[in-house]
């Protein structure tokens, strides 16, 4: 008997394969999102997936058999805000990379978090501009040698979770591709959350990050995530020095705040 992958029913017919390179973490993120939808028994036709430019923009589009919006560079959250305001009944999910959401689209990210608009943003953070040839990104770790920083990166990296937390997001979590089960759990929680949810996924780019910086292939990078990550609970008792170069994984923020489309609906009812 031939087994069929339980998530294949969500894959667009004709999109026979993921668009990513060998060992890319984006495929693991795609699978985690689809598994969360499958486990919650939600209808994928109620979703609108919005993505931008970059490797991670290819996670939902054209791979997911749902409404997808592949937008201009850095603007997926701006487009998603429009979709959510026009159709508040739709579940809006933004899946894009760190270059798209944190570099060129950084302002959209913080303002969506400030407005607390009901959408889920999943950021595949590979710490580099993978698609364009491995240039330094605002999320590149300090000291890393990339194509454009041959003597090492001298700029500090963005802490995207702290950024969205400070801007006012309702739910913030960080995982790596090694923590695929935790990631699925967080996506499930984010999808059921009313306000703005942000999930940062530290993801491997074996070609532009692993190969150029000498970290190694996809397996070596994922094993590195396993060794260098700490849970939120464990990290709370450690000093700043001990947490240097460590990835803190888990749920960082989970609170209930008034959601934007609900507030607008309330206002509309008062003035009707």
């Amino acid at each position: 008997m031939k087994l069929v992958h339980p998530l294949m029913k969500y894959v667009r017919p004709g999109a026979i394969s993921t668009a990513t390179c060998t060992g890319c973490g984006d495929g693991i993120i795609a699978q985690a999102v689809l598994r969360a939808i499958d486990e919650l028994e939600l209808n994928i036709d109620d979703f609108v997936f919005v993505s931008g430019i970059g490797c991670a923009g290819w996670i939902p589009s054209p791979f997911f058999n749902a409404d997808t919006l592949h937008t201009t560079h850095g603007r997926p959250i701006a487009f998603a805000t429009g979709v959510k305001l026009a159709r508040p009944d739709r579940e809006v999910v933004v899946i894009s990379g760190d270059g798209d959401l944190a570099a060129i689209g950084g302002n959209h990210l913080i303002h969506a978090a400030r407005r607390n608009i009901g959408m889920t943003v999943i950021c595949a953070n590979n710490g580099i501009y993978g698609m364009t040839g491995g240039q330094v990104a605002p999320t590149t770790p300090l000291g890393l040698k990339t194509t454009t920083t041959p003597y090492g990166n001298v700029e500090r990296a963005f802490d995207l979770c702290a950024l969205t937390d400070a801007a006012g997001a309702s739910y913030v979590a960080r995982w790596t591709t090694y923590h695929a089960r935790g990631l699925t759990r967080s996506v499930k929680k984010a999808l059921t959350k009313r306000g703005f949810s942000f999930i940062e996924v530290i993801s491997q780019c074996p070609l532009q990050y692993g190969r150029r910086t000498g970290v190694g292939n996809a397996v070596a990078m994922m094993k590195g995530y396993k060794e260098n990550s700490l849970s939120v609970k464990k990290a709370a008792s450690l000093s700043e020095e001990e947490l240097k170069n460590k990835i803190i994984v888990g749920e960082l923020v989970d609170k209930d705040m008034p959601e934007l489309t609900e507030q607008i609906e309330k206002l509309r009812r008062i003035h009707e």
Partner: peptide, 16 residues
């Protein structure tokens, strides 16, 4: 293996 496969190429299931 199924969870980590980036290409949805592996299926693991209990034998019927």
């Amino acid at each position: 293996c199924m969870l980590y496969c980036p290409d949805l190429a592996i299926v693991v299931a209990e034998e019927e």
